[in-house]
């Protein structure tokens, strides 16, 4: 899922301090799972902002809500009858949701309330780590189910590099060497021979290098 983290309060306050009617819009999707932007976080942010405005002697209305998914128009439409009550919206959805909300209500000022970070897993509560860079052409079949693009700091396709030591990446000892993980997995699977065949340069057009991407599924469209 998409992983995000709450933006620093100072930054949010700095964005919204000039407004007096604010809606904090959470999203029930990915950001709820990583506890960055669900209804709960929307309530906490709204309460904090109310305290901020009140202690500063300013009358401000700060309400909270959460939408099933901010990346879908049907759910964003749930705001249509009340969005005009607000001067600005702080969206706690991922970057997709924030943009789609802004796109749908194009006259409304929309601020981000989270920093959208990566596609990752929940290792445990409060510990999320990256697994996929959405390059658009999955090579996991060749690499023992471990992605070198997401998990090698240099996204090498023929690793591990000479900086791999003790199973750790040269960048920092908290990062497992992606290629060492691949090696161990291929060994377990009895597929080490894959190591000796050079992998040719990757076609990055399906990654962000091809420009903004789109999936058109004619089989699904009417």
């Amino acid at each position: 899922m998409i992983k995000a983290k709450p933006k620093p309060m100072e930054e949010i306050i700095d964005n919204v301090k000039g407004f007096s009617k604010l809606l904090i819009a959470g999203c029930d999707g990915c950001v709820t799972v990583c506890e960055a932007g669900g209804l709960k976080e929307a309530k906490v942010l709204a309460a904090a902002l109310r305290l901020y405005f009140t202690q500063g002697g300013k009358q401000a209305q700060v309400d909270e809500t959460s939408l099933t998914r901010q990346c879908e128009k049907e759910y964003l439409a749930q705001l249509s009858d009340r969005i005009d009550n607000y001067d600005a919206v702080v969206s706690l959805a991922c970057g997709c949701g924030i943009q789609y909300l802004a796109e749908m209500y194009d006259k409304k000022v929309v601020f981000p309330g989270v920093d959208t970070c990566f596609l990752g897993v929940n290792e445990e509560r409060g510990l999320y780590s990256e697994r996929c860079q959405a390059c658009g052409r999955c090579i996991l079949a060749e690499t023992g189910g471990i992605c070198p693009i997401a998990r090698c700091s240099k996204r090498m396709l023929n690793g591990p590099c000479g900086g791999s030591e003790g199973g750790k990446c040269e960048v920092n000892k908290d990062i497992p060497c992606g290629w060492e993980l691949i090696y161990e997995r291929l060994k377990t699977l009895g597929q080490l021979e894959r190591f000796e065949t050079p992998t040719v340069p990757k076609d990055w057009t399906t990654s962000r290098d091809g420009g903004p991407r789109k999936i058109v599924r004619e089989d699904l469209r009417i």
Partner: peptide, 9 residues
């Protein structure tokens, strides 16, 4: 505590 510091309480 952090939030109260940040919002001025």
């Amino acid at each position: 505590k952090e939030i109260l510091d940040q919002v001025g309480l």
